[in-house]
Amino acid sequence: MKKRTGVVRRTTKARVVTPRRRNPVRTDAAAPPLVTRKEITVQVNGVAQTAEVEVRMTLVDFIRERLGLTGTHVGCEHGVCGACTILLDGAPVRSCLMFAVQAAGQEIMTVEALGTPDRLHPIQEAFRDHHGLQCGFCTPGFLMTTLAFLRERPSPTADEIRVALAGHLCRCTVYQGIVEAVSDAAARLRAGTPTPAPRARGGARE
């Protein structure tokens, strides 16, 4: 959620204005059925995962609880902290602000696919070298945004990095280390530092 100022004042939109109708047209399309559960197939870290989910299950709960990929963390469940950021078809999104059912047919990448403890991805290596993490809780989210961001902007300035990462909260507040790490990671990637192939790690049940 966008960080809004002011408390949430109203819950749902009241619809008070009745529109004037012009050009009456009949709609013939049938309304699709309403469901409360649905079977979905999602590509997660390169592995097709099929599961039946309750439609209200958030994507992050699906990733963590159903797939056992606990590297993606839940920090606020209202879209501000960025801890649950994953890549959806390559772009960073808050997985607490999507329902699992919405990801059907799409590709998800989580931190588990990035590198291994023995062979860190250059971004992870740079975070380690520049002390870009303390408790490590927010870190996977930062890494996923960084991965997408550097693909788009391989040579960012420090200011651009700060803007790109402003949607992530780090309470240990190693922002300075993170900005340095991202800058360094960009240099490493430009220099062609070999990156581990994304790991096919679809989850505990693969």
Partner: peptide, 13 residues
């Protein structure tokens, strides 16, 4: 760090 950076931390959740 290698553990925390790769999603290998064990937080209570």
């Amino acid at each position: 760090d290698p553990r925390l950076l790769t999603g290998g931390g064990t937080f209570v959740d």
